[in-house]
Amino acid sequence: MDAADDLLLRIGADRELSGFLAWPGDFDLERRDPVEDLRLPTGAPLAPIAGDGAGGTFFLCGEPGTARPVLYADSEGGAALIAADLAEALALIAAHPYWRDLGNGHSPADLEAELIEHDPGYPARRDRALALLGAVPPTAEEALARLRACAARTVPDFRPIARHQDAAGPYDSAYTVLFQD
């Protein structure tokens, strides 16, 4: 077991933290069943760790005890690395649950205001989750810069391929475009 596995166990044992990550973070430990069985071109293992409400899956890439970046694969055939490791991914998701929209022309302030409109207790819940994770929240600018750097590393080694015969080939690297400068 490595640090990522320990962190996942800790989250699973804390209802408050796992609840916040599930919503609004859309990182649900109960949704570990990917839409497709995926593999990496390098043969490195992919371990599904959480899913989102739209059918996407978060994976740890690589063997326990090694550097394990986090890959997000959506249900539409798009994928990208989103963080260098699980701790960085969780800091991103907790601080900016709207991370997918950061590089999509949306103002972080507007995204934040929309969350607060739907959940006035969101800022306090976010701060509590970050404290429970022991995470320093990245600013929106830092988060987007990290997303871009990670997404740029996706191709070729971390671009997943569906294992079944009818697969259309490797997943699209659309997120790498989304998070480009």
Rank of each mutant, 00 (worst) to 15 (best):
F59W: 12
R100T: 13
F158N: 08
R100I: 13
D119H: 13
D6Q: 15
A3N: 10
C61L: 02
P160D: 12
R15M: 02
Y122I: 01
A22C: 12
P45K: 08
F179C: 05
H118V: 00
A109L: 10
R39D: 02
Q165A: 14
W23N: 12
H96V: 07
F158G: 01
A109K: 11
D52C: 11
G77L: 09
P108L: 09
P69S: 08
D33G: 02
D2I: 11
S173T: 10
Y171Q: 07
L147V: 04
V70S: 03
E63K: 03
L92Y: 05
A13I: 00
Y72P: 00
R148H: 15
I49Y: 09
D85P: 02
E63A: 12
T42P: 02
G43V: 06
E112S: 13
L92Q: 03
D26A: 13
A174T: 04
D172R: 15
A73H: 07
D74M: 06
R100Q: 13
A87L: 03
R148I: 01
I49K: 04
G43L: 04
P24G: 06
R10Q: 14
E63F: 05
L178V: 10
A140E: 09
D28G: 05
G65Y: 07
L29E: 09
E141N: 07
R125F: 03
A47F: 01
P160V: 09
P108W: 06
D26N: 15
Y122K: 07
L90S: 09
A47T: 15
A109P: 00
A168G: 14
Q180G: 02
A47E: 14
L86Q: 08
A87Y: 05
S18H: 02
H118R: 13
T139I: 06
A167V: 04
R32W: 02
R125A: 15
L102W: 09
P170G: 14
V136D: 13
A129T: 00
M1V: 10
R100S: 09
G65E: 05
L115C: 07
L38K: 01
S107G: 09
A84T: 11
F20V: 04
